[in-house]
Design a protein around this nucleic acid. Structure first.
Lengths: 216, 216
DNA sequence: GACGTTTTAGACAATGGTGTCTAATTTGAC
DNA sequence: GTCAAATTAGACACCATTGTCTAAAACGTC
């Protein structure tokens, strides 16, 4: 039983790598078998055919990614004594563990390449991943807004913008499949949060009067 | 000669579509031939083999995309009498003609799927596309900053953030290969520019109530 | 209308991948 | 140690695809 389980995991991991690198049609069962140090027949023993294996891989990675996202979301700062640093640390965790990590890159790439042909496959990820992220973040930002730390009119928009800003400096790296260094992650998060707070931070609330004060 | 040229274009266009949908290994010459209303032999007549055709397609799309980006960049507002509206219109042009259009989607998708195996192929796009965009935008923002319209400390960061904010509301749509509607483009650009100006505008005061949320 | 070029349909070998089967071997539980 | 289950290597049929080849047809130019 333990041997079996180990083989299954080995196959799933190897298949994820090969599928990610080559796409569904480009990946070959032989290559996956070799990468998993397993005979081809063993794969067919565990999974009916290539497509079944692919579905299993996506499900596996999706559930792992969802769990990680949930965990990171629950670390969102609730005390606001040092909002900039706390938000920056949160953005780093989000980028590092959900966006730029193995699973995140896998899912984003696969959704792009195979999402058109397996729309139902990634539906769960779409809802539990990006969808959940925006909703949860929106609620968390709303809390900070109600407590007066932030000044936000549309929480959903702000949530999407927070995520987008967090990725702004990483796009060039991730586009080509690379993984940012810790320094890059830290810098990107710092830039993102700084701008986010310039836009939405209480200290930066646009002074209403200035229009009248503008020098004549 | 004209017939030949037409065939070539037809092949390039059909190949772009099929490669984009299926990826390199998933695309079949027969399918491309059928889509181009051309016999398979004609394709081999114009292009040595599948890889040569692929390279030609990428070069073709890349040069078109670069030209379009250049054109859009040259429409960046230089008068600042109505910065919010001008920037919003610019962001719409950028999204519509460079990011979410046929060529833009093609290149982003192909870079993700095949970029690892043809790194040199997309190098030109990487430099002339995203690279040029950031540099040019950075210079344009610097102009607005020096003239006092914006308050920016790091122009490169601001340029990347402008692009990222412009995509914030469109990610969910484009991730799955969809094309945003004009309303979505307009709303996304409006939200992006509003936040950008809240962060970098000189004593910016929002002009209008927030638009409805752009949803997937 | 004639002629060289291009295109076409179809056949073709070669290749590589999928999924099945079998017989031998290894593994793990008892 | 025994026995059943799992794994392995290899062979196999089958299919799709690539790239070549050929002869016939269409095209364009003069």
């Amino acid at each position: 039983m333990r041997g079996q389980c180990a083989k299954r995991l080995s196959i799933l991991e190897a298949a994820a790598n090969v599928f990610c690198r080559q796409g569904f049609s480009g990946a070959s069962i032989d290559e996956i078998a070799a990468a998993a140090c397993v005979s081809r027949q063993t794969i067919y023993n565990h999974y009916r055919d290539k497509e079944t294996l692919f579905v299993a891989v996506v499900d596996d990675v999706t559930s792992r990614a969802n769990a990680m996202l949930f965990s990171v979301l629950s670390s969102f700062p609730d005390k606001a004594d040092n909002l900039e640093d706390d938000l920056t640390a949160f953005a780093v965790r989000l980028s590092k563990n959900c966006v730029c990590n193995h699973d995140g890159k896998f899912l984003r790439k696969l959704v792009q390449t195979e999402g058109e042909y397996y729309p139902h496959l990634f539906e769960s990820w779409r809802q539990q991943g990006p969808g959940k992220l925006t909703n949860a973040l929106s609620a968390l930002l709303a809390r900070l807004s109600h407590s007066g730390e932030l000044v936000i009119d549309d929480f959903d928009v702000a949530a999407r913008q927070f995520v987008a800003l967090g990725n702004a400096d990483l796009q060039l790296v991730t586009l080509f499949g690379g993984t940012p260094t810790d320094e890059q992650l830290e810098g990107a998060a710092r830039n993102a949060v700084r701008t986010f707070l310039r836009a939405y931070g209480r200290a930066y609330v646009p002074q209403r009067p200035p229009l009248a004060v503008v020098s004549a």
